[in-house]
């Protein structure tokens, strides 16, 4: 409060004028600064600092996480990556998974939302049941799915043989593991569905009324109204799902019972590869390498997000804002 009084007296001499300006500045901004202090501290300590130290570590070839990092080299860890077969496999798997899984989940969760958007009795219960698997812990659902997809005793193969099909080697063959992972992931569609439902609610009813007066059928209304009006959500889902998909970790790890990348590393993912290096960092001096791997992931995710944002001209945010 003393400083505020100084400001009022500021006009008289040049000396307090400067202090008055500072006081003025804090009077104007002070409250805002206090409100954002915790988050600023949080970002500085828990995001920016580790981000930068990770970058520094990533150039060290011998860092083990305990002794100070040494043997810095600009391209050493990059060279190591391209000679690392496991890394290349993890990239292949992560890309394949993302390319298939993201569009598949977008389309199927949209279809599910359309179905769950009908006005019939008890629709809320159906929505709830479909969403329910999303509140399951990934650990628990991993254990459950591992048992259900067991080659000999699992329900899935019992079902397949019961309807006269061959049992499917869900997680026991290299070629079948990725499809299994993607199929099991479909039980999480409820999360996407809820997002779509909220977007569908936002579409003004008049649009449909006008369209139906013009004799537009289901297909036309879907293509000309529903989908264009949903583009913000498509965009949001696309960004978040791509970012999330590149960080696939917990669901694979639990499904393979902590066994890393499954048979022949067929479902070894990028983040798993990072944790493998991280877990052996002391004996292999690979902490720097793990940091380099994670920074490459960061750059790739940032670039991809940038590309999606750049290409977002098709997103319709409505006339008013």
């Amino acid at each position: 409060m003393e400083q505020t009084q100084l400001t009022t007296a500021a006009g008289f001499s040049p000396q307090p004028k400067k202090r008055g300006k500072v006081a003025e500045f804090f009077k104007k901004n002070g409250a805002g600064f206090i409100f954002v202090t915790p988050v600023t501290l949080g970002i500085l300590i828990f995001t920016l600092y580790p981000l930068i130290s990770s970058l520094v570590f990533s150039f060290s070839l011998t860092y083990d996480g305990i002794n100070p990092p040494g043997d810095f080299s600009l391209f050493g860890n990059l060279e190591r990556m391209f000679a690392d077969q496991e890394w290349l496999i993890s990239i292949r798997n992560t890309v394949i998974y993302t390319v298939i899984n993201v569009p598949l989940c977008l389309v199927l969760s949209f279809a599910l939302a359309m179905l769950c958007n009908v006005k019939i009795k008890g629709i809320g219960i159906y929505r709830m049941l479909i969403y329910l698997p999303c509140v399951m812990s990934v650990v628990v659902s991993g254990i459950a799915w591992r048992a259900i997809t067991d080659y000999r005793f699992g329900w899935a193969n019992q079902f397949l043989t019961a309807i006269g099909l061959q049992p499917y080697p869900f997680l026991t063959q290299a070629w079948s593991s990725m499809p299994t992972l993607i199929i099991v992931g479909l039980w999480g569609l409820g999360g996407g569905m809820v997002l779509w439902l909220s977007q569908l609610k936002n579409i003004p009813a008049e649009l449909y009324e006008a369209a139906s007066l013009d004799g537009a059928g289901f297909g036309t209304r879907l293509l000309k109204i529903t989908i264009p009006m949903c583009t913000p959500m498509i965009f949001y889902n696309l960004v978040m799902n791509v970012i999330g998909s590149f960080q696939t970790f917990a669901n694979v790890t639990t499904l393979t019972a902590g066994g890393g990348g499954g048979i022949d590393n067929s479902i070894l993912f990028y983040v798993q590869k990072i944790y493998i290096e991280y877990n052996t960092s002391f004996s292999q001096q690979s902490m720097g390498y793990a940091c380099a791997l994670s920074w490459v992931l960061f750059v790739v995710v940032a670039l991809l997000t940038g590309v999606i944002f750049k290409s977002s001209k098709w997103v319709y945010y409505g006339g008013d804002d």
Partner: peptide, 11 residues
């Protein structure tokens, strides 16, 4: 946008 794994190791 920062993948958790990037900050987890230095932390």
């Amino acid at each position: 946008m920062v993948p958790g794994v990037v900050t987890q190791i230095p932390m």
